[in-house]
Amino acid sequence: MPEMNGQPLLSYIVLSYNYEEYIGTTLRSILEQTVQDFEIVVVDDCSRDRSVEVVRSFNDPRIRLIVNEHNLGGAGSYNRAVQAARGTWLVNLDADDWIAPNKAEIQLRAVQKDPRLDIIGTHVKILDHEGKPHPDAPSLEAGINQPHNLNLVQNWVGMNWLCRSSSMVRREAHLRIGLDDAAMVRAPDYELWTRALRMGCKFAVVPQQLTFMRLHKRGVTHADPLGQFLELSYAMMRNLIPLAEARALHPTVESIIAWVARHGELCKLEPRHAYRLLGIVLATPEFPDFTAFRSEVLSDEPDNALVRAGRRALTTYREGSPGFAYANKLERDIGEFIHARNYWQAQAEHWERVYHMRRTRYTPRRIAAALLRRAKIAPELLRKLDGYR
């Protein structure tokens, strides 16, 4: 059995939460690697199943298990693993995925060819929860497994082409760029990758399907489209826009603003919040973390400058431009919302007036008097009706 001697070359980071049926496959795929100079740092985020027992069943001193005392979420658990890892390279692998036996060997070979590399991914093969080919795999893989140059800012606009489970990150570079934003749930890896790009890290992707990724309902990335939209917007505002401006990539800045303005999730925000988000993307103020950004977007405090900036951003999409139709749709939605609000408010006031009027008009005494009046004229009405027979 291999023993740990000094600093390992690779530190595999495996995050687990209720993945007892998968994590055994994940760990075996690491133990079967052709490069054996590694440690495995497993962080269990308070699993309620037998995940911890499965990890402990592997009798290998290179496996280090960290069990959180309370639930930290994916980003918080990842940060614990990064701080505990000792390897020259940090190799990410989610507890429901697995890798080909020669993955690390091929990625290290790419580093030998280009020692400037800091982050190396691979192409992926997408499977379902049972490890069988996913029905959507052909279309998904056709988009992901393309020769995307991840060193170009424009290739990151609204898209994450780097699968975390395929990535290998130089530890020295990771410590320089910092940890995950622990408040992010849907796209912490996207924020980390775009921050690495902003801070000068060099990317590469091995064009071989060496990572096997499960796509199933328990994944968190696409479970909250609005939350993901806000996290992506934050990452682009924080990392991509300053980098694009520094490189004088003005069309890229325009495409980022257009991506936010055209996104379907923007209409799910209340109008003032949608305008605030666009205003923030234009102004790019500094925020300590995603929590502060989200609080500012969803704030109800009046900030006419941000709201005006956001509204003006939509007016730049004139007729004939790509954003014109969306700008019109948002303005129509806002107008319809105001119209509906005014209509139902008027209806409520009308029925309240009717209720009070009837309550004062139709007292028991008045109702009885009306019935008596009708009783008196009933015989005359009957005679008239008989005349038409």
Rank of each mutant, 00 (worst) to 15 (best):
T194C: 06
G387Y: 15
Q208I: 04
L9G: 05
R332E: 09
P288Q: 14
N160Y: 02
R308H: 11
Y317S: 02
L282V: 11
Q228F: 03
G387Q: 15
A235Q: 04
N145A: 08
A305P: 08
H174E: 13
E191P: 11
L226C: 05
P8I: 12
Y19W: 15
I30G: 09
S29I: 10
P302T: 15
G143L: 08
L150E: 02
R365A: 10
Y12D: 03
E39P: 02
A244S: 09
E286M: 14
V35A: 05
A104Q: 11
W193F: 13
G6V: 05
N328E: 11
A95Q: 04
A246W: 12
H123N: 06
E21G: 10
H148C: 04
F229T: 01
L127Y: 03
K202I: 06
L314K: 02
W259H: 10
N92D: 12
D37S: 13
R374G: 08
I99K: 06
A369I: 04
G200C: 07
L266Y: 00
L90H: 07
L226R: 07
N92Y: 11
Y190C: 10
H222T: 11
H263K: 00
R109N: 13
S299L: 07
A325S: 12
R214K: 06
E53A: 12
T363L: 06
L277S: 00
F290G: 05
L192W: 10
